[in-house]
């Protein structure tokens, strides 16, 4: 058998056995927090299902009205909604896959291969996590304009194709989980480096890679600043399209909030499917995206 694998962060968790189940205060507080977390989304749907005149009336409605689909149709008519959704899917998927691939490659090298300068380079990677690269927007924009990429999805995808955090995360993971023996065995077998990576490291990295991909996906999907600057109304991502709804002279708030609801649905679906993975990803040390 493989010598005991140690997964970082997954250290054996002794539950606080012997202690009683928590009382209603704990549940009450948690329940209140949860209600606060859900309420804004509910409100968004609620107003999005009425017409905007409802906001000026008191008391506010408590139950959804029947206008959601009509408002949603207005949203789709008002902004290139399907285009934006497709763009968001393309950008988020491409960026996630690319980050996972490049981060795993680099992580594999940092964790398992010996080469000159490995230590300092890794320190450098970690240090760049603290660099607010968003502040380079002006030159980045100039560069994109020179390349003729403004308005194109490539302008959003390319700068995000690999992240320092991803590299660091995969390095940590592979260092802890991938036994050197496996690699040596593959090498002795005559496998090239890239084969070793592909057949040994990548499969071993799968759990961490999935989480990295997931977080990258969410972060890319919700990203606004750079896409807002470099894309335009014709070819937006979902967040960019969403802000256009508010930026109109005649603002129909039930339409705006129907749009906010609509734009949130895809990630809610993702949350239902992969919420557990997100939770355990954070608990294993994922950082803010």
């Amino acid at each position: 058998m493989i010598p005991t694998t140690t997964v970082p962060g997954a250290a054996t968790r002794t539950r606080r056995s012997g202690l009683n189940r928590p009382g209603f205060v704990t549940y009450g507080l948690l329940g209140a927090f949860l209600a606060g977390s859900v309420f804004p989304l509910w409100w968004s749907f609620l107003i999005g299902s009425h017409d905007s005149t409802v906001l000026a009336r008191t008391p506010f409605p408590l139950l959804p009205g029947g206008n959601f689909l009509r408002n949603a149709a207005t949203v789709i008519d008002q902004v290139p909604f399907w285009r934006a959704t497709l763009n968001s899917i393309i950008v988020s998927t491409t960026v996630s896959l690319s980050v996972v691939l490049f981060a795993t490659l680099a992580g594999f090298a940092f964790a398992k291969l010996r080469f000159l300068g490995r230590g300092p380079l890794l320190v450098f990677v970690v240090a760049t996590m603290a660099v607010p690269t968003q502040l380079g927007v002006v030159p980045l924009f100039i560069v994109m304009a020179r390349l003729g990429w403004t308005g194109e999805l490539t302008a959003v995808i390319v700068p995000a194709m690999v992240t320092a955090f991803g590299v660091f995360w995969m390095t940590q993971y592979l260092r802890g989980t991938l036994p050197d023996e496996l690699i040596e065995a593959a090498r002795v077998d005559g496998a090239s480096m890239i084969r070793t990576f592909w057949h040994v490291a990548l499969p071993a990295a799968r759990p961490a890679a999935a989480m990295l991909g997931l977080f990258t996906f969410v972060a890319t999907w919700t990203n606004f600043f750079w896409p807002f600057i470099v894309l335009n109304a014709k070819n937006p991502t979902l967040t960019v399209a969403l802000q256009q709804l508010q930026a109109a002279y005649f603002i129909d708030y039930s339409m705006v909030l129907a749009g906010a609801t609509l734009a949130t649905i895809p990630l809610l679906v993702l949350f239902v499917v992969a919420g557990r993975q997100l939770v355990s990803g954070i608990m294993q040390g994922a950082v803010k995206g």
Partner: peptide
């Protein structure tokens, strides 16, 4: 798991959407 997922729910809402809702 329910509670843990519950507190994480707002994380998947884009700041843009959050802002539209809260400014209202």
């Amino acid at each position: 798991t329910f509670w843990r997922m519950g507190v994480l729910l707002p994380y998947v809402v884009a700041p843009v959407a959050v802002s539209l809702i809260f400014s209202n």
